[in-house]
Design a protein around this nucleic acid. Structure first.
Lengths: 177, 177, 177, 177
DNA sequence: AATGAATGAGAGTTCATTCAT
DNA sequence: AATGAATGAACTCTCATTCAT
């Protein structure tokens, strides 16, 4: 399943070949089918893994004050250290346009993420670490959009992504640190 | 070529079948090959079309003052009216991770877009329509990221994209209209 | 037709493409079909040409005495100057195994050739230029086989073909000159 | 592989169809591809088989005296009993004109054959079974050419080939038997 | 739990031929 | 006499899946 994950990251859904996956882990294709009856089942496994990886790593933790800042950093770090995860998330996002099940998963993940961000923004505002006039709902959306865009290889590779994030932090009043 | 474009939008590169494309326009596959010798050639045609469509529609024009606002609106409108273009751009973005030629095209397009945005921001600031303390380079990057994220169906479909854009306009001081 | 001839010589029947032939003479394929309704018709044209070329060039002429020697030289020269003719003859010979029409043509050509050789041998023997104890029929067959083998690229390219011919001339008592 | 061999013999390289080969042995084309990944691989298999068949059958063995005579007979017998082998060898010979790998194989085979013939001729001469004044190198070449020409269906089918061989034996002084 | 072998369905591509002009 | 466009049929090759062991 990890092999399939890497394969999707490297070649996209377009280039995912069960034989390749099996070979990568030294298994016979028939044996792979023993564990994942169909290609779709294998993909489901990959999706689960990717989502898990994404959620657990990005769940904000640590001291309540600079959770927001930390969260930003965590996203950057994750996509930098594991660019494959970004690639796979991008593939899944595109897939969700034509796969209702996938769409549901993505929507739920995004909703949860949005709620988390909004909560953080609200608490930060309440504790005076953030400009109070901001509508936390709208800002959360903007932040979400910005972070999501990092998924795309076109932007992820360019240094501009850092500029964008910096500006975002500046506007939020987080850049002091 | 338009048929191929739609096919990619609907099924992704993964699901692009020359036979399907040919059938859609009532042509024999051999005839399709008469015009596009290989599948790759057909894809190149689609890329050219998509890029053209993207660039021409988004090239800001009109009165100098609210070009920026108009540009935002144009992007929103384009992706709303032609969701396929968004889907295809997403596919191309993902492809650029494994196709150097594609990467070059995307990079150039993004660079041009970034320059355009930065120029607009600068002029707007000079004419007093924008907060002057902003670094136009960074802001342009943030705007680019936000607009790019709209490409992804996950976000494009949700109403949150509007919230994000609105917040962006507010920060820029453009929300008066 | 000459283009087709060269094409067969270069790529064999296996690699003969009407489009290629048409392109070589700057014609549209449809135009080629105007003159040669089918590929088979084109091939028939090539066969006719090749056979003609073979027969006319090899028809012994000159002084009656050393016609035989001259004939040997002519074959060598022909295959050296126009290796394509050898290649095409080889292709035709192979084709004759599965194409009765082709087989007939080859048989007739060979028969005529054999008669010619036998006639030459007889006259040479009568005039004392050849060992008289030889059976002209058998010798003609051997000569024919040797000369035919030169058609094959495997042998045609090697210098051994000359050794073989030389030995043949020696046995015939022709090597004095 | 044997099926492919026969197919080439019957229809030439020109008419070799993987589907046909698969059907002939009751296999799915995919299964054929399981064993021979490409058509070229299948052809290589056929070449190997043909060459092996040729070499092993023609390797002279038995008592040292009439090996030469036996060798002649073996060639005749082989081509008479297995005309397919002749056809395939002819195809290979033609192919060698445009396929360097094939050319190498043919050259090596011919060289080995020539060496064998020359060795036999020398020993035969030494033992007094052959006219001593003959240049074994040249004679070997002539013999090789004659035997090779038998490959071609045009000659193989005609009774003249026997005349040629007989004459050759006579000249060599082998016709006693 | 594992595998070599087999397969149906389909992919992109090629090619001689034909059609309309 | 010539051509661009079109096509049916066929080709090699691929791939997820299944079968027998």
């Amino acid at each position: 399943m990890l092999a399939a994950f890497n394969e999707i990251a490297d070649r996209g859904f377009e280039g995912l070949r069960t034989r390749e996956v099996a070979a990568e882990v030294g298994l016979n294709i028939a044996t792979l089918h023993y564990y994942f009856p169909t290609k779709e089942a294998l993909i489901r496994g990959v999706v689960e893994h990717a989502m898990n990886r994404f959620r657990t790593t990005l769940a904000p933790h640590g001291s309540p004050d600079d959770q927001l800042r930390n969260h930003f950093r965590a996203v950057r770090k994750l996509l930098r250290d594991e660019p494959q995860l970004g690639a796979v998330m991008g593939e899944l996002a595109l897939r969700s346009a034509r796969d209702p099940a996938m769409a549901r998963i993505m929507r739920e993940t995004n909703d949860a993420w949005h709620r988390t961000l909004r909560g953080l923004l609200r608490r930060a505002a309440r504790e005076g670490h953030l400009k109070p006039e901001l509508d936390s709902d709208d800002v959360a959306s903007l932040v979400l959009a910005t972070l999501t865009s990092m998924t795309l290889p076109t932007l992820a590779a360019s240094p501009r992504i850092d500029q964008g994030l910096r500006q975002l932090e500046r506007w939020l009043g987080l850049s002091s640190n």
